[in-house]
Computed example of a mutant assay.
Amino acid sequence: MMFKVLQTGSLVAAVVTTGLMAGLFAAFSYAVMPGLAKVGDRAFIDAMQRINVAIVNGWFMVSFMGALAFAGLAAALHWKADDRSVLPWIVAGFVLYLVMFIITVAINVPMNDKLMAAGDPAKITDLAAVRTEFEARWVTWNIVRALTSTAALGCLAWALVLHGRVTGKG
């Protein structure tokens, strides 16, 4: 009984945290970045620098790291289950989320760091060049993050549905 509670709990936590991350990246794709696209270079750089500082907080980190940890735990717990029909969906969700995680760490975070290193927007001599180097590439990779994390969410949500069906039989 406790084992099934752990399986269910880890899978629910994976779905919730993955959903929070998918929503964040999607919101940046369809609202934040299109809105910022309409402001001047100084305002764009200033806003993105401020967002990059504000986003590194406990709520973000729990979701960002938690989704990977909870999906991994759910996979491990379902690996040992009598009925492993849910496992492929959990593994697919984990892998898709891992792809998003790697993109974030390898591409978006270094770009954010470089934007931060450009310094105070009031003192940057070529604001347009800094923005041009950052914006299009960051937006493109954020869309990839939105798609992969949303696909991960879909896989994990389907795994939860299947888990419910399997658990309901026993």
Rank of each mutant, 00 (worst) to 15 (best):
A43E: 13
A76C: 07
V15M: 03
T140D: 08
L6R: 02
F44S: 03
A159L: 04
V12P: 05
N52H: 11
W138N: 01
A136Q: 12
T8Q: 10
R84N: 12
G170I: 14
A71D: 09
M65L: 15
M21G: 01
V16P: 06
L68S: 09
V86Q: 01
L98R: 11
F60S: 00
D113S: 14
T18I: 04
L20A: 14
F101S: 02
D83G: 06
V16T: 12
A129S: 11
A92N: 07
M111F: 11
I124R: 01
F70N: 01
K38A: 15
M61P: 02
F60Y: 08
A122L: 12
M65I: 10
V16M: 13
L160W: 09
A67W: 03
A128C: 08
V15E: 05
L36N: 11
S10N: 12
K169H: 14
F25K: 06
V56E: 11
M2G: 13
V39C: 09
W138I: 07
V32M: 14
T150V: 02
V39K: 01
A159Q: 02
D82I: 15
R84P: 05
R131F: 04
A74V: 02
L96W: 03
N112G: 09
A157Q: 01
A27I: 11
L11C: 12
K4V: 15
F70C: 10
L96N: 04
W59E: 14
R42M: 11
V62G: 05
L147C: 12
A71Q: 11
T18V: 10
F25S: 01
M2Q: 13
F28Q: 04
L115Y: 00
T104K: 04
A122R: 12
I90P: 06
A129Y: 02
P121K: 00
L68H: 09
M48H: 10
A13E: 10
S63P: 02
L68K: 08
V166L: 09
A47E: 04
T125E: 15
F28N: 09
A152L: 07
N52M: 03
